Each structure stands twice: as structure tokens, then as C-alpha cells.
Amino acid sequence: MSRRVVLWRHGRTEWNAAGRFQGQTDVALDNLGRQQAREAASRLAALQPNLLISSDLQRAQDTIAALAGLVGLDVELDARLRETYAGEWQGCTSTEIASRWPDDYKAWRSGDPLLRVGGGESRQEVAERMFAAITDAAARLPEDGLVVLTSHGGSARLGIAAAIGLPLHRFTNVGGLSNCSWSMLREGDDGWILVEHNAGTLPTPVVIEEG
């Protein structure tokens, strides 16, 4: 078996629920987000990870803490796993952004990799730092090892696109990650392969009474 990398999005925050662009604003998990982290951690623990690394933003740290407690591993922090720094857009809703910065919002929605989001980072810059974090973490694994990287919705998608060689102007072809869902990359002969995406979004099973 080859090396594997799990990119795990943090649980829900109040800003997620309100549809606000978080970026690097350090918003904590809400009650549902903490519950999501516990439930997802119970599934990810079955993968027996060798290494746990998190974005240094609190919502990511609190998410991975649920897994660390189950598998008995320490969590390392890596600021390269942060969400895109979105400058003036942070704290705004999509409606507010579209109203105040209509041209930039249209370019962002179309997947422009060079646009500096809210005057902050571009997707190109985020993809480069995310890919470096992924490859550095994977290099520390044994041949059949697995690392869980707790990150954020936009930055995780960009890391995936960079890892599988998807041109960044087609970044939007990688679907969004739901809160506390994850994707898995496996190392292949010619690079990284996306083998799972947005896992953890299965509905709660229906309870059927026997008899």
C-alpha cells in the first residue's frame, strides 16, 4: 500500500452557518461543529493515522483534537494549511461581496487563480503553500503510512487540485467540502491520485425495527 494523505475540513462555525466568508479570521466551532468533529473522528480513527497536522486556526485545531484523543497522537501545527487570507472580504456574506466588489466577485466565482481575494492571497499562492504542506507531510510517512491534515474548505480544494495536476483555472471542477468531511489522496507511480472526495456526507441511517 502506498502513502495516503487525508485532507479534513473543520467542523461548522457560526460564520459558516451565517454564510460569512471566514478566510483567516479565527472563528471557533459552534456546538454542531464540535459534534461533527466527534462523529467524524470516530470514523477517521479506524484508518490508524501515523501523523496528525493541523492549520493553526482554532476551528481546525479543535476539530483534530477530537481525533487526537482517540488515536493517542500529538498534533503538529502548520500555518500553510490555513484558509485563504481574504482581506476585506472576511466577515462578509456572498451578497455583500457581490454588491461591493462585483467585478472581483465575478472573477472569483469563475475560478480566476491570480485574483487577490479581497486584496489578500491568490488561489495560486494558496495552492502552492498547500501542495508544499502535503508533500512535506507525506515525505515523513512510512511506505504504507497515512497523515491527516486538518484544513479548510477552499485551501483543501486548492491543495487537491495542485496535487493531482489539475490546472488552477479549472479548480472549481473539484467540488466543495462539507464541514467535517474529508478527501483522500494516494501516492501513485505518476503522482497523487484522488481516491475519496467529500467523504463523511452520507445521511444518517434510517432505523428499521425488526419483526
Rank of each mutant, 00 (worst) to 15 (best):
T150C: 15
S110R: 14
W182Q: 11
L67S: 05
L29T: 01
R4G: 03
A107G: 13
R59H: 02
G200D: 01
G87W: 06
F171V: 14
L81T: 12
H169K: 14
E96V: 05
N179M: 00
N16R: 01
G154H: 09
G200Y: 11
I193Y: 05
V6P: 15
V148G: 03
C92E: 05
I160M: 11
R82A: 15
A137E: 14
V126P: 00
W108M: 11
G145E: 06
M1Y: 02
N50F: 04
A137C: 12
S94G: 15
G211T: 08
E88D: 14
Y85F: 13
Q58H: 11
S99P: 02
A107H: 11
V148F: 11
G33D: 00
R157Q: 03
A156L: 06
D104L: 10
F131R: 09
R20E: 13
I193A: 04
L194F: 04
G175A: 14
S99Y: 06
G200R: 03
L115N: 08
L168W: 03
G19I: 00
S178Y: 11
A162K: 15
E210D: 14
L47F: 09
R109E: 14
R3T: 10
W89E: 12
P113V: 11
E210C: 08
A156R: 01
A86F: 08
H152C: 05
L141S: 07
H152N: 07
V117S: 12
V207M: 11
R123I: 07
F21W: 10
N173M: 15
V195A: 13
